[in-house]
Design a protein around this nucleic acid. Structure first.
Lengths: 140, 140
DNA sequence: CCCTGTAATGTAGCACGCTATATATTATAG
DNA sequence: CTATAATATATAGCGTGCTACATTACAGGG
């Protein structure tokens, strides 16, 4: 069990989340929330809640929670699309834009810390293997 | 962000948990609970709650919850160690013993599914890299 | 035009992580 | 022997994931 790949992946994910959340806490953000920040910023600041769901690859009630907390904390604003009132459009606030760069730096630091004892070719190989594993999970 | 190793690890961990929990649900178990089952079984059926905590590498309130639910569902029984009343000793029930083999089979199937497109030497390499990443997380 | 189906969102309730705080017990220093 | 520190467990409260169910809005066929 200690040698299970799945178990190791879980340990890494948990520890990385704890560290990232700790670093982000002073800004009122969490790791999951920075992923929404990143996605919206890359999309020009605006997206549908459904598009966030597809990007994060989580179930829709999870997105409801994350978006609600980000609205509550002033990072997002949202309204119903008048063209299609099923869609909830979500946009980064001015405040949120100021955090995008910080968030990118922090996440880059974590990534470097994680991989610091691997060579560039090893990192490339690792990425390839993780993609294969993700495919195995999806195609089955 | 889509290329972040940390993000890929998170996606894999989430999807594996969903699949494992689904397969285990019919037996009234979850993935985390099977790890407790495995640990206790390997230790001869009995351990302290603190030892479970050290094995799982999670914060102690998390163990309180998992152990409580396993007691509620008849997989564990617990009592205070009369030698040292700070210790809560936890033991597998008869019912739980009957699930150990099933649990081992299920977890082996998941591991094979996960890794089915990797060669044995790649799996070995992957395990080595994940151990390095875990070390990076702990020594920093 | 209505009826049925699909799509997007929401709510309820749960499991499992966490931090912060409290309590009980044991160990140790003075 | 007593005061203090350390250890193990518990509780409160929160964030993020899930499933199951409900609601609202649009789309298409009859």
């Amino acid at each position: 069990m200690n040698q299970d790949i799945g178990y190791k992946l879980k340990l890494i994910t948990d520890k990385l989340k704890v560290r990232a959340d700790k670093d982000l806490k002073q800004h009122g953000l969490t790791l999951s929330q920075t992923r929404v920040l990143y996605f919206l910023s890359a999309k020009g600041g605006e997206a549908t809640q459904k598009e966030i769901e597809d990007y994060l690859q989580v179930a829709h009630p999870t997105v409801v929670g994350i978006v609600s907390r980000m609205i509550r904390n002033g990072f997002l604003e949202a309204w119903l699309d008048p063209e299609n009132r099923r869609n909830k459009v979500v946009r980064l606030t001015e405040k949120a834009h100021q955090f995008v760069k910080m968030m990118t730096v922090v996440s880059g630091e974590h990534e470097r810390m994680l991989l610091r004892s691997l060579s560039p070719s090893e990192v490339c190989e690792l990425r390839r293997m993780l993609d294969l594993i993700l495919e195995n999970l999806e195609r089955s």
